[in-house]
Design a protein around this nucleic acid. Structure first.
Lengths: 153, 153
DNA sequence: TTTTCGGTTCTGTAATTAGAGAACCAAAGT
DNA sequence: ACTTTGGTTCTCTAATTACAGAACCGAAAA
């Protein structure tokens, strides 16, 4: 078993793990995601991940599948080799950003329904709510443009 | 005890509560926040909140203080009245959005430190990471502008 | 000075989540 | 046919979170 990480790399995985926990990932998912960004090798197998992070097979399996669902990692296979080689998808961060922006839609739908059902005796309050829903729509459109226009892609 | 909510309002608090739980609030916090947006009265006291949502005093107290820390609600007092009157701060959503954007800074700092420590044998990968950190900075600047330019404020 | 009001804090418990370890499984190798 | 590989799924336990209920506390009222 080759040792994959320097001490500095371990430290970086912990820091990055912590900030990603703050963004809603489980500890194991956060560290798997971080590992694939920090490690010298950009393609690691299930067992390399498990050994390096000292996780059980179940924790490794669940973390990996969770990250795949979130589109934060992906994998490829090699001909005549059953293993999967996992890699970060940070290079495709645009998708994740766009999913995040689209996620505001569900939130906005509820706010709009609240607005429809509000008493009309609080005009100013209701107007603020309306401004807010309009801003969300504006923000969704405009920040999608920001992403598209980034470096004239 | 006056009954504050219609059935429709109760339903809206539940839907909105659920989407806000998905955004990291505890069930009680999510419902207190929703209540202050849905209720006809835009200013509710501690006991009105507690009775309406059927929460214990401790749950009410913790939820309220949590929401105040997150700047999602505020309160005012009235002369000769010890009670606090809580209200949503959705009208000041700009602050919350801006805090969210600024929150990306901590994330980006770690990514930059990872980049500094990466092997230089993965040029393309490292370049993607660099693009990403640059995009975050661009996105922070530009979306701050989006907020400022909204309706020429 | 004692009681009431408007909460806060502490203690115990129920519910949820995270993860270990073992059993399990399908496909490939022997 | 059985063994190995590369995982997945099940079961159980530990840790964390959410909350109720009661004790508590300071300021004001009586």
């Amino acid at each position: 078993m080759k040792r994959i990480l320097t001490d500095k790399q371990k430290e970086l995985i912990e820091s990055f793990g912590v900030v990603q926990e703050g963004m809603g990932l489980s500890p194991a998912s956060a560290r798997v995601d971080a590992l694939l960004i920090v490690a010298d090798s950009t393609e690691l197998t299930f067992d390399e991940i498990r050994e390096t992070l000292k996780l059980s097979k179940s924790a490794t399996s669940n973390a990996i599948n969770n990250l795949i669902m979130l589109k934060r990692i992906g994998y490829k296979t090699k001909l005549g080799d059953r293993k999967r080689y996992f890699h970060t998808r940070l290079g495709q961060w645009k998708n994740v950003f766009i999913d995040g922006i689209e996620g505001l839609t569900a939130y906005n739908e509820v706010v709009k329904e609240i607005l429809i059902n509000r008493t009309d005796s609080t005009k100013q309050f209701n107007q603020q709510l309306k401004d807010f829903t309009e801003f969300i729509e504006y923000y969704q459109k405009e920040s999608t443009k920001l992403i598209k226009n980034w470096k004239k892609n």
